[in-house]
């Protein structure tokens, strides 16, 4: 706390997150989720999987943002 850096950056971690997001939605991870049954909330499992990954991506970016810029006001 006593030596708080002016600006925190997480570019490296963000790139790892990007690669993870691509593998979750394509090969190899998507391959395992690529099935119709069971339907979840009316969606085929593979489509639900994509929605789930996108929700997770939203939360991840939110964390990156809060980490880098705090909860300060927008602008």
């Amino acid at each position: 706390m006593e030596n708080k850096p002016r600006r925190r950056s997480a570019t490296g971690a963000y790139i790892v997150f990007l690669i993870a997001a691509v593998t979750l939605m394509t090969v190899p991870v998507f391959t395992f989720a690529d099935r119709v049954e069971p339907l979840v909330f009316g969606l085929p499992f593979n489509l639900f999987w994509i929605v789930l990954v996108e929700l997770a991506a939203f939360v991840a970016i939110l964390c990156f943002y809060v980490y880098e810029h705090g909860r300060g006001s927008e602008t």
Partner: peptide, 23 residues
Amino acid sequence: TEKRIKLTTLAFPLFGIFLVPVL
């Protein structure tokens, strides 16, 4: 600005989900 770019990126996974009912 930088912060607005990042906050906009944040919205895009949700845009992806918005497209599901279109399908």
